[in-house]
Write a protein that binds this DNA or RNA. Sequence first.
DNA 1: AACCCAATGTAGGCAGCGCCAACAATGCTG
DNA 2: CAGCATTGTTGGCGCTGCCTACATTGGGTT
Lengths: 198, 198
Amino acid sequence: MGMPQRPYHHGDLRAALLEGAERTLRDRGVAALSLRELARETGVSHAAPGRHFKDKQALLDALTLAGYERLAQTLAAADDPALPIEPRLTALARAYLGFAIENAELLELMFARKHDPEASARLTDAVDRSVGSFERLIADAQRRGEIVEGDVEQITLVAAASLHGLASFSASGMLTREEAYAGVAGHVHHLLCGLKPR
Amino acid sequence: MGMPQRPYHHGDLRAALLEGAERTLRDRGVAALSLRELARETGVSHAAPGRHFKDKQALLDALTLAGYERLAQTLAAADDPALPIEPRLTALARAYLGFAIENAELLELMFARKHDPEASARLTDAVDRSVGSFERLIADAQRRGEIVEGDVEQITLVAAASLHGLASFSASGMLTREEAYAGVAGHVHHLLCGLKPR
DNA sequence: AACCCAATGTAGGCAGCGCCAACAATGCTG
DNA sequence: CAGCATTGTTGGCGCTGCCTACATTGGGTT
């Protein structure tokens, strides 16, 4: 009879689903994410999401991809190549830690090892752009003699592992957010100077 | 009519369920773990597990606890206090990395932040015993002057974070098992000596 | 301008899931 | 040996992901 509440076609259902999914992920965790509930919240039928994501896993893969793209952007924005190594790395570490804390559930998804191989082409690309910020920093610092010589990839791995470990501890609740933030500078210092006495 | 295939009471259903659950977890991941299927495999009715675990989460919590106990034992066995700091820490790192690779799904569960607060008393204890191996190592090394002075907990955190990051990268497939093992010694060396030139 | 068709939505159904309540067998304890 | 807490079974509820069949729509072709 009256005006249709909503037009038959949504307009941009895919984006709306991703947005809703990310909200639920952040608020209530990946276990609470249901395609049917998501469809209900978005105001479409329970089968509509299937037109845009063949699978629940496909939705999770899309969230993961978006997560890496946001991470890469966050890191790139936080990197100031003009700074000396220690403050520069500290800033980058703080940015990564912030992302990890604000997106703990998403990060867990990003580190899960069960993504559809079909999605992994663009995914690998997004991962590389995230790691790229660290790799650039290491390569620059080596050129300036601020960092020991050696294979860039391995040294990047050491630095990234150290920061990811810290982030992982924070995200999993072993450290409070405040403890983690307060410890970043000291953490980076120990990473750069080592644990042996100098 | 005939002999009952199995006696009405299982004998030690709880242990059998945990064992089966751990196998499924290792083989097919936490997402594939279903109480009903587990009951089927164990040869009991679909409601029997409920007598021993009030919840699916309670089962996961029990797996987590067992995981930390096994980890603590693995680390304690791998620690040789007689060794100098670098080989000692390398051995411990190798043990942790091995655990992480062999029990990737379990480790993910152990680092999830959604455990029932009721279970967290014994859990905290088991976590402490795992971290204890690293803390002892750091404290010993400080006493011998092999490690820079400073708050033991923070330095332990730096070391543990570095190794956990490496383990996490391996477990999530960003590094192959071989790459990870091959890089352990170098990783520990960089951790101890720092990234700045000396 | 009319038509067709691919894209995108809906409706309904299926098997499996976690959880719950009611009932049955068991074996420990008096 | 009687009673009862423990531990098992059966059945059922509402939810889920996924599938198939059908409905609506708007853009591209003629």
